[in-house]
Design a protein around this nucleic acid. Structure first.
Length: 356
DNA sequence: TAAGCGTGGGG
DNA sequence: TCCCCAAGCTT
C-alpha cells in the first residue's frame, strides 16, 4: 500500500482539531472539553452504548440507553436484573442476542471482577458480546488506550482516503492496516470517536460533504472523483418471502397467552404470540382448539434475511386452560406491549381494538 | 467461512 | 416502493 502525501501525525491532529469543534453530544459521551479537564468516562456506560450501537443508529439507541441507565445505573445492578426485564427493555432494538450476551457479560464482570471492567483489548475481547470492534472501542474510549476501531464508518473513510477499490469484506484487513497507521498515541479515545463522527456526518455513504472535510486535502478518492462509489461491496443475496400465523388469545378476565421463545435463533429469548414456524407456505398450528377468527389485516415485516407475511387469528381462551412450559398467561396489567419485539407488537396493534 | 441475526430511517 | 444502511457478534 502506498503512503499518503500527508503524515499520519498531521492527519490525526487535523481530525482532532475538527472534533474539538464538531463533536456531537451523546448521552454516553464525555465531550472533548470535559475530557481535557480530566473528566473520565464511565466504562459501564461506554460498554452499554457500544453494544447498543452495534449495527444500530445513534438516534435509535438514545432512548434505550437512557432507560437502561436509569433502571440499572451500574453493571452490578444490571447483573442482578431478571432476564425477562432486560429482554423487555431491549424489545424493539433488534439483534436480541446482544441483550442475552449483555446480561451474561454483566454477570461475569459483577461476580468475577468485582464490578470493574478490564481496561485492555486483550481482556475485553471474548467477553460475551464483545468482538474486535467493541473491545477496541471500550479500550480506546473508556480507557484512552491507543486501539484501532474498525466499524462501517472507519471502513468507508479509509477506503476513500486511500481510494481502495477492492470490495468488502475481503479488503477489511487492508482498511484495518490503514486505520491502525493513523491511530495516534495522543488522545486515542477522542480520535476513535472523531473518525466515526467523520464517517457519520461528513464522509457519508451517499453524497459525502467533501468540501468541508478536514481530510479533503489528502483524500485520494476525492482527487479521483470516486468517493461516492466507495467502499465497494460484494452483492447481497435476494430476500425470500416467508409466511406464518400467530394466535392471539385472551381469557375471559383479560389475561394474554404468550410464549417465551427459545434462546437460540430468531427473536431468541423474547416474548411472542404462539404461532407456526415461518416458511414458504403457512400451515395451521393453533395452541388450542377454538373457533379462531382470522384478522382482516396481516403483518408485513422484513428481517435481515427474509420478508415475512403474518396472518393473525384471535380467540377466547377456554376456562381451565393449562399453559405449557414455555407459555405465560399475563394479566392485563402485567402485559406491556412494549416488551414485545416489533413484529409481535405489529400483530398486537392490528387486533388490540377488537380485543380490548 | 459464510450465514444468521432486527429494526427504522433516508434517498 | 424498495433498497441501502447503521459505532458487529456468533457459530
Amino acid at each position: 500500500m502506498r503512503d499518503l502525501a500527508h503524515s499520519a501525525d498531521a492527519l490525526s491532529r487535523d481530525l482532532l482539531d475538527w472534533y474539538d469543534v464538531h463533536a456531537r453530544a451523546m448521552p454516553w459521551r464525555v465531550a472533548p472539553a470535559d475530557r481535557a479537564q480530566g473528566v473520565i468516562p464511565d466504562p459501564y456506560r461506554i460498554w452499554l452504548s457500544e453494544v447498543m450501537l452495534q449495527q444500530t443508529t445513534v438516534a435509535a439507541v438514545k432512548d434505550y440507553f437512557e432507560r437502561f441507565t436509569r433502571r440499572w445505573p451500574t453493571v452490578t445492578d444490571l447483573a442482578a436484573a431478571q432476564d425477562a426485564d432486560v429482554m423487555g427493555e431491549w424489545a424493539g432494538l433488534g439483534y436480541y442476542a446482544r441483550a442475552r450476551n449483555l446480561l451474561k457479560c454483566a454477570r461475569v464482570i459483577s461476580t468475577e471482577r468485582d464490578g470493574r471492567f478490564p481496561d485492555s483489548y486483550e481482556e475485553l475481547i471474548g467477553l460475551p458480546g464483545i468482538g474486535p470492534y467493541t473491545a477496541a472501542a471500550v479500550a480506546a474510549i473508556a480507557f484512552d488506550r491507543p486501539e484501532t476501531v474498525l466499524d462501517g464508518n472507519v471502513e468507508r473513510v479509509m477506503a476513500r482516503l486511500h481510494d481502495e477499490h477492492a470490495p468488502l469484506p475481503g479488503v477489511k484487513p487492508i482498511l484495518k492496516a490503514h486505520a491502525a497507521a493513523l491511530t495516534p498515541q495522543h488522545r486515542p479515545g477522542d480520535y476513535a470517536q472523531a473518525v466515526m463522527d467523520l464517517g457519520a456526518t461528513i464522509c457519508t455513504p451517499k453524497s459525502p460533504a467533501c468540501g468541508i472535510c478536514p481530510w479533503r486535502a489528502p483524500c485520494r478518492a476525492r482527487t479521483e472523483g470516486t468517493a461516492a462509489d466507495l467502499p465497494r461491496k460484494t452483492p447481497k443475496k435476494p430476500k425470500p418471502t416467508r409466511h406464518g400465523i400467530v394466535y392471539i388469545a385472551r381469557s375471559e378476565c383479560g389475561d394474554w397467552l404468550l410464549e417465551r421463545r427459545p434462546d437460540k435463533g430468531l427473536l431468541g429469548g423474547m416474548l411472542g404470540w404462539p404461532g407456526t414456524d415461518w416458511e414458504a407456505a403457512p400451515s395451521e398450528a393453533a395452541p388450542f382448539d377454538a373457533d379462531w377468527t382470522p384478522a382482516p389485516a396481516e403483518v408485513r415485516h422484513t428481517f435481515t434475511h427474509f420478508h415475512l407475511i403474518l396472518q393473525i387469528r384471535t380467540a377466547t381462551l377456554p376456562a381451565g386452560f393449562v399453559t405449557e412450559a414455555n407459555q405465560e398467561l399475563l394479566r392485563r396489567h402485567d402485559f406491556r406491549p412494549s416488551d414485545l419485539p416489533t413484529v409481535m407488537r405489529k400483530a398486537y396493534d392490528l387486533v388490540r381494538d377488537t380485543l380490548c
